[in-house]
Deep mutational scan, measured.
Amino acid sequence: TEDARKEAKKIIDNGGSPDEAAKFIKKYGLSEDQARELVKRAL
């Protein structure tokens, strides 16, 4: 979702790792793979 993508970008912009961002956005109901893909797109 757009919200999850924004959250991921915010985490990374604040110095978080892509892994942290992926873990965080899994709470939106995404699978591990979906979360990682979304983080990649957010970069």
Rank of each mutant, 00 (worst) to 15 (best):
T1I: 15
T1S: 11
T1P: 11
T1R: 11
E2M: 09
E2W: 02
E2F: 06
E2L: 10
E2Q: 09
E2Y: 03
E2V: 11
E2P: 09
D3C: 15
D3S: 12
D3E: 14
D3A: 14
D3F: 12
D3K: 14
D3I: 14
D3Q: 14
D3W: 13
A4S: 03
A4F: 08
A4W: 13
A4D: 01
R5Y: 15
R5D: 04
R5T: 09
R5F: 15
R5W: 15
K6A: 12
K6H: 07
K6P: 03
K6W: 09
K6G: 06
K6V: 11
K6E: 09
K6I: 13
E7M: 14
E7W: 11
E7S: 08
E7T: 08
E7V: 11
E7K: 06
E7L: 11
A8R: 03
A8C: 09
A8Q: 01
A8F: 09
A8V: 13
A8N: 01
A8H: 03
A8D: 02
A8E: 02
A8W: 09
A8S: 02
K9D: 02
K9G: 04
K9Q: 11
K9T: 05
K9Y: 04
K9R: 13
K10V: 07
K10Q: 10
K10M: 10
K10F: 10
K10S: 09
K10G: 06
K10T: 07
I11A: 02
I11K: 03
I11W: 05
I12W: 04
I12D: 01
I12P: 01
I12Q: 02
D13T: 07
D13E: 13
D13Q: 12
D13H: 09
D13A: 13
D13V: 07
N14A: 14
N14Q: 12
N14M: 12
G15R: 02
G15I: 05
G15M: 05
G15S: 02
G15A: 03
G15N: 03
G15Q: 01
G16N: 04
G16L: 08
G16R: 05
G16M: 10
G16T: 02
S17V: 06
S17K: 03
S17I: 05
S17G: 05
S17Q: 02
S17A: 05
S17P: 05
P18Q: 07
P18N: 05
P18K: 04
P18V: 13
P18H: 06
P18S: 06
D19A: 11
D19E: 14
D19K: 08
D19M: 07
D19C: 13
D19V: 08
D19Y: 10
E20K: 02
E20L: 08
E20V: 05
E20T: 04
E20Y: 09
A21Y: 14
A21C: 15
A21W: 15
A21P: 00
A21Q: 02
A21D: 07
A22Q: 09
A22N: 11
A22C: 14
A22E: 12
A22F: 13
A22H: 08
A22M: 14
A22D: 06
A22T: 10
A22G: 05
A22R: 06
K23L: 08
K23A: 15
K23S: 13
K23V: 07
K23T: 07
F24R: 13
F24D: 10
F24Q: 14
F24G: 13
I25K: 04
I25G: 03
I25M: 08
I25A: 08
I25H: 03
I25Q: 03
K26M: 15
K26E: 15
K26P: 14
K26D: 13
K26T: 15
K26F: 04
K26L: 15
K26A: 12
K26V: 13
K27R: 09
K27Q: 12
K27Y: 06
K27I: 10
K27P: 00
K27N: 08
K27H: 07
K27T: 04
K27V: 06
K27G: 08
Y28C: 07
Y28E: 08
Y28S: 03
Y28G: 02
Y28M: 10
Y28T: 05
G29P: 02
G29H: 02
G29R: 00
G29W: 01
G29T: 00
L30A: 00
L30E: 03
S31R: 00
S31M: 02
S31Y: 00
S31I: 00
E32S: 06
E32P: 06
E32F: 08
E32T: 05
E32G: 01
D33P: 05
D33Q: 10
D33V: 09
D33H: 09
D33N: 08
D33E: 13
D33A: 12
D33G: 05
D33K: 10
Q34H: 03
Q34R: 01
Q34G: 02
Q34T: 07
Q34M: 08
Q34E: 13
Q34Y: 06
A35G: 01
A35F: 10
A35Y: 10
A35N: 02
A35R: 00
A35P: 00
A35H: 01
R36F: 10
R36Y: 12
R36E: 08
R36H: 09
R36M: 12
E37G: 00
E37A: 09
E37N: 06
E37F: 00
E37D: 10
E37H: 04
E37C: 13
L38M: 09
L38R: 00
L38K: 00
L38V: 14
L38T: 04
L38Q: 05
V39D: 02
V39F: 09
V39L: 10
V39N: 00
V39W: 00
V39M: 04
V39A: 02
V39G: 01
K40A: 13
K40H: 14
K40S: 11
R41M: 14
R41N: 11
R41V: 11
R41Y: 08
R41G: 08
R41H: 12
R41F: 07
R41Q: 14
R41E: 14
A42M: 15
A42E: 07
A42L: 15
A42N: 02
A42I: 15
A42H: 04
A42S: 06
A42F: 14
L43H: 05
L43F: 05
L43W: 06
L43G: 04
